[in-house]
Design a protein around this nucleic acid. Structure first.
Lengths: 348, 348
DNA sequence: TTGTAAGCGTTATCAA
DNA sequence: TTGATAACGCTTACAA
């Protein structure tokens, strides 16, 4: 008894045997090559269908150096920020017969490196990546291997490169200016991790706005923390406890690098007992879906997540399919979405 | 001038040439096969590193029939419900050197079929799938091809099958009972699409609870809609407009199949002007992250998303790596999370 | 300990 | 219009 022949692999060779033609004929028919006799074509197609044939894309990929697979490398799959982007990319890829490999670098260089090499190894046709940092070996790796790439969130400084992202410095400026115009002068900047490029740019915008409005910059009002609800909550709790559970006007507003941080501030407000916006104004960044539903609804800087997804995948596919050789550097506009988390101090 | 030799492909054969050994020796060294001379091994490893060699996983997959790739097929990438599950699966896969292909069937049979075939074609080692429906050709397809599978959300009725999901009927029952005990007797069921198995099971639980408490079942209080914020909002708006913009006690509470629908009810409440929970009580299902931050915080049935992710990927990998031949049928517990969206009518 | 060679499933080139 | 063949990069008998 031979158990090995339990289930024969249905491949082109097998179809050829059944149809009594050569593998090349089957291959041609399957790819709708016009140079195939209609009758035999129909016959082969029918057999393929009856046997539930599906192509082995590994073999095809190995031969063609094309896999119709796109890699998406992000830094925090938990952040709702990404889901609209992923959704729109996924839908578009699905329509075009592409597949998406998704992974998370967790803001870690080694993980990012592993992810990139994995993409390369798996033969993706291109990647969309939110890089861990503006300068790193990993980016060199991508460029050496000539992997088609679109950077999102922010981009390394090279000439021949595609990116689609918002201007974080401008966002920081706009948000700070907004708070200043509402009469706030002591504005806490709840920034992301110190080493992240995004944090640096956001800080620049914040500082620029303060300078333009001739407001003294206080180092004690600039805080760095990991980009999570918990991070935001902890910073605020610590600050309040230092001030003996009251906020002695050290800051009347807080600007956060991410809505998730802002939600952390909301959480702290619940625990400590101060009120938003009466005791503390909050401005977030990203405008994630849920920010409109917070209590109070969060005033935040809108980042165009759907546009980011659409543009980046379009650029990538255009280059992969050789419709376009140009590099695209797109900086998207940002705008403030006024809701109810900022108190008007009515001074200016 | 020959432009074709611009960039030589670094593969095992090339490494072999440089190291003046055979490809098989290189292959052995790279796979840390003990039967390799230490000195040559070191030399080859160094060359591989210097040349930035990375393996072609398509070729490896083609040969080994193993790709270290897992497919995840869901039905609505936009639903926050899935984020936590995806995150935990992604992290676990990353740790173990696996890759995740993610796609969305959008509750559509054809798309689901395409997705499954794509997974098969790409040679994934296994899939985790939230099926569109309990019975379909697509599931037959999976079973015929012996693709290792874990079903989540709900499962088709077969013997040899793995699944990890919550008992939707029980969830429907619990939620309805909770509302009844709070004194509600006219409970609107805002269900998902009629043809979905989840909707059917949820309905069963709802009906069972009403029957147990001897409450008249009213067909007019059972509504089906697509699983989205907009869907939930529209249904409620329509119902209120039919009643001349007041809710004449036709229902004092609404139970929704998903927190996203519940948020739709919140949205309707904003637009129409009724108050939750004073004018209308709401109970959701899923306990997505943001439900705690809604205003008022949403009372909802908690679905264990992280456990679902952990268990399903564990089961899948155990079977892929042949540590486990048993099938696992896991029904997870559900519990109600009491927050502030239900009014106590104080009657019972 | 190392090398030779065949094969995984596909397609493109060439010849018939 | 069709078929034989080589090649994509990797691994594993088997031989040396």
């Amino acid at each position: 008894m031979d158990k090995t022949q339990k289930r024969k692999n249905i491949n082109i060779k097998y179809l050829a045997k059944i149809a009594r033609v050569s593998p090349s004929t089957v291959s041609r028919v399957l790819r709708h090559d016009p140079s195939a006799n209609n009758k035999t074509a129909d016959r082969i197609l029918k057999i393929a269908k009856d046997l539930n044939y599906y192509p082995n894309l590994l073999a095809k990929g190995l031969r063609d150096k094309k896999t119709k697979t796109i890699g998406i490398i992000l830094n925090d799959l938990k952040n709702p920020l990404y889901y609209e982007t992923i959704k729109v990319i996924g839908d578009m890829l699905n329509d075009l017969g592409y597949t998406m490999i998704l992974c998370d670098s967790n803001y870690d260089h080694n993980t990012e490196r592993k992810n990139i090499i994995n993409m390369l190894s798996k033969g993706v046709d291109g990647i969309i990546i939110s890089p861990v940092n503006i300068k790193s070996e990993n980016i060199t790796l991508i460029r050496e291997k000539d992997l088609k790439t679109v950077y999102i969130d922010f981009a390394p400084e090279f000439e021949n490169i595609n990116y689609v992202h918002v201007d974080h410095e401008h966002a920081g400026y706009t948000a700070t200016e907004y708070l200043i115009r509402k009469g706030h002068t002591n504005i806490l900047l709840l920034n992301g991790p110190f080493q992240l490029s995004v944090s640096k740019n956001f800080l620049k915008g914040y500082l620029q706005a303060l300078m333009n409005y001739e407001i003294t910059i206080k180092r004690s009002l600039i805080k760095y923390t990991e980009l999570s609800l918990e991070g935001g909550c902890e910073v605020i709790k610590k600050l309040y406890s230092l001030n003996n559970l009251t906020n002695p006007n050290r800051f009347s507003a807080v600007l956060t690098l991410s809505d998730m941080l802002a939600i952390g501030v909301y959480e702290a407000s619940k625990k400590i007992g101060f009120k938003i916006p009466d005791d503390l104004s909050v401005v977030g960044y990203d405008n994630i879906f849920m920010s409109a539903y917070l209590s109070p609804p969060l005033t935040t800087i809108h980042a165009p997540k759907i546009r980011t997804g659409k543009l980046s995948i379009q650029i990538l596919l255009d280059q992969i399919e050789n419709r376009d050789k140009e590099f695209h550097k797109i900086i998207l506009d940002t705008r403030i979405v006024e809701r109810d988390s900022v108190k008007d101090m009515g001074i200016i």
